[in-house]
Structures are given as C-alpha cells and as structure tokens.
Write a protein that binds this DNA or RNA. Structure first.
Lengths: 231, 231
DNA sequence: TTTCAATTGTGAGCCAATTCACAATTCGGC
DNA sequence: GCCGAATTGTGAATTGGCTCACAATTGAAA
C-alpha cells in the first residue's frame, strides 16, 4: 500500500466518510491529526477521557480490558479502515477500555467536536454512522451469545468463524485468516487460557478442519466448521 | 398508570420520541399498532424478518437466544419505555433473537419504513437514536467484559449491580431491584445454572450484602458490593 | 382452604478447564 | 547464521461449577 501522503486520501477510503463532499472532507482534514504508534504501544487507557474518535490508516490493534489480576480480555481486533473510540460521540466520560497496537500502526485522530458537527449537519453521514454502530452492535451481541453456555472448545470454533468474516481471504487450500494471532491472543478473545487453546487447535487440525501455514490459520473446511459449531 | 388511551400519549412518554412535533407524532401514530401479549408469549422468533421496531408500553420482556440443547440465554430485560428490535433499522435480515414476555405486556409496533422515514428527515431524532444505540452498546460491552475470565459468583455480583442501574429504587433498607427474577432467570443472564445462583445468593445474604423481601432482592450495602465486585 | 405447579435449597459425584511446571520449537533482531 | 525472547506443546494435579436427584418451600388457581 502506498504511504498515506495526505489525510484526505485516507478519509476517502474509509467507509464512513466515502460519500463526503470536498468541503466536508477539507473541514475534517483541518481538524484531524495523524499519529504513529510502534508495536505494543497504548493508544489510550481506560481512565482517559473520550474526546476523539480514531480511524485506522494502517496496522493492527486490540481493544480490550484488564481484569483485576492483570488478565487481558480482548473485545475486538481492528485493522486498516476500521473506526474505534466512537463511544466518544455518545458522551465524553472515560473510555473504559484500553486500546493498544499489535503491530506498528498509523491512526487518524478526529476531535469529538469536529465529528459531532459533521453528524449534526449531514443527515447522510448520521445515518451511515447509525448503520456502522448497528452492525458493530450486532457483532457484539453475537459474541455475547457465543460466550454464554458454550464450552471453551466451541467458543474457539465460533471465534474462528468470526475471524473468517472479519479477516478471511480465499486461499488455495481454504480460507485463510490473514492476520496472525498468538494462542494467548485467541485465549483473550474467548476468555480461556493459552494451553486450552493450543489443545483445541491441535484437535481441530487432527480432525482436518484446520491447518496452519506461514504463521496464519487456514480453515480447510469452512462449511463443515459451520455445521460443527454454529447453532 | 392510566391505561394507554391513544398511541400519541405513549409515544410522547418515550425518550426517543419526546421531542417530536405534532405532525411527526401524528404520522407515526398512523403507522403504528398496539398489540397485547399474555405472560410467556413470544413477540418474535429468531428466524422472523426484522420489519419493525417495538416500544414497550407496559409489562416486562426478555430478549434472548436459545442454544443448541434448548438452553436459554438472556441478553437483556426490557420494561415500559424501552425500545427493542431496533436492529430492523440497520437491515431487514432475520432477527436472530427471541423476545418473549415475562409479564403480560402491551407493545407499540412501528413499521420499519415509518421509522426510517422519520430518521431520514429529522436530524434531531437521528442523533437521539445514535445516542440510544450507543448507550445500549456500552451496556453490552460491559456485560461482555463481565463474562470473560470472571467466576460465576462474581458474574452474579456484577449482574446485580447492572440490575440496580436499570431497575434499582431506593428503599428503607437499601436499594431494591423492583422486578422479580427467578434464580433460573438470573442464571440465564450470566450463563450459569440455577443451583449455582441459589448458592451464590445465599452466600451474599450470609455476608450481609443482600436481603430479599416480598419476592424482590434488596442490595443492603451497595458501596460494599461495588468494592467487592467491580474492577 | 386445598391442591398442584413452580421455585428454592442442598448434597454427592463428576468432568472440563485451569494452574503449574518444563521442554521443544519458532521468531525476530543483529 | 546466531542467539535470546517469545511462542507452542504436553503432562500431572487441582478445582469450580455442572449434572442429577430429591426435599422443602412458596405461589397461584379453583
């Protein structure tokens, strides 16, 4: 991908802003900042105030929580083109979550006021935004459902199907999940432990559902996977 | 509460619609229907199409899922003044969830087209709607967080704190949760079993955090409860 | 009040998944 | 290619919470 020369280029390539007029884009551009983060750096912390939303230009990040004893739980993984921190638009209380980079990332930070102004004046954007929040919420609810009453092994299966939707790409031998996640990271996503994830993945490989290649997972039998884990 | 004579009275008392003009209200009124449901009746099923949103006029309902082996998991409980089924505004795919009454309920059903028209023309409503979805999403994320890596006992504690926020009212001896939920229903909300909930509640009572009276729970020591379970 | 259904309480046995501990492998930077 | 760090693999011991089974209590309807 070409380096991001200017913010406008980038804004245009983001789902939410794709339909903005030139002047709206220019306005947003004036009121946003590009920030770069090395791998493993925090973007914001739970106690910080929610005063801006972020658009991911490049890289990979996790949105998560830290439980009492330092355990990390991961709510979502976001990549280029995604938006996060949009709760800032509801109110500006504290974030309540931690966002940190999994890879070096470049972010576009848009101040709360700027985006709110835009939403108040452009009904198209407001509706588009509704839609994005709605879709995000649906994903959240599905994850909630997948956690209640489901065994650790099955939660992992369901997570892989989720990841396919978000990061899947066709590949010779099946569907590849194009980002690399450690077993620990997968465990954080399903509320389990690293060891249990290792064992479950091995089992799925033994059953021929899965294989791994160059650090990424490949779902060999997507349909069988769905039949096995969904509903 | 007075019986709902006309829909307008009711619409006006719903957060989302409180600021509508007379003509907008009249328009909505023309395009909505009142429906009554006895206790335990389904409002819609997971496979049905999402073609309308609902406003609760009176009663109590649960929004939930049914897992493979017939287990019920509950995503949320809603009461008078609440909105549900609003995913219909994002798209009209299938509901994906079941809604059923816990008490006899009266609902206002508003067709998808009507509400979408309203959102497209009135930016105030669109923004208010954004807000409601946002707040709802925040609650969802918190519940997600409360399920990952948290013991069954602690999940129950956190749930009670959530319920206090949604249904709490001051009472002589503390904060009363003004709706009655069976141990089974509490278990459905935290992904646990009826027996485990019984034991955990007994423990909290023994510790003096909790008491029950006339079928409802009373949190005697709200601050201690928070200190014990939050963060 | 009586009666039947639903809810609550409690114990025994069991199993999935966690913790802990350590070895094998792979990765990333120099 | 080499080396320290991170990740992955695997076993043994432990346990939280589930299942099953049944009794006690409370609620609702007639």
């Amino acid at each position: 991908m070409a380096p991001i020369e200017n913010k406008i280029w980038f804004l245009k390539h983001c789902e939410l802003f794709s339909q903005l007029s030139q002047s709206q884009l220019a306005n947003l551009e004036r009121r946003s900042f590009v920030k770069s983060f090395p791998k493993g750096a925090p973007v914001y912390l739970p106690r910080e105030n929610a005063d801006a939303i972020y658009v991911v230009a490049s890289g990979l990040l996790r949105i998560g929580h830290i439980t009492t004893e330092g355990k990390q739980s991961t709510l979502a993984i976001v990549e280029a083109g995604d938006i996060f921190g949009e709760m800032a638009l509801v109110d500006d209380t504290e974030r309540g979550e931690i966002v940190e980079t999994l890879k070096a990332s470049r972010l576009l930070r848009i101040e709360r006021d700027a985006i709110q102004e835009l939403l108040a004046t452009d009904i198209q954007i407001s509706i588009a935004f509704n839609r994005i929040l709605g879709l995000r919420r649906r994903r959240m609810e599905r994850r909630l459902k997948n956690l209640l009453f489901v065994s650790s092994h099955d939660r992992l299966g369901l997570l892989l199907l989720d990841l396919v939707e978000q990061f899947g790409e066709a590949s010779g031998k099946g569907t590849r999940i194009r980002i690399r996640l450690s077993h620990q990271e997968l465990a954080n996503l399903i509320g389990s432990t690293r060891e249990t994830v290792t064992i479950s993945l091995a089992k799925m490989k033994r059953e021929g559902l899965l294989s791994s290649e160059r650090n990424t997972l490949i779902i060999k039998e997507l349909e069988m996977m769905k039949k096995r884990f969904v509903n």
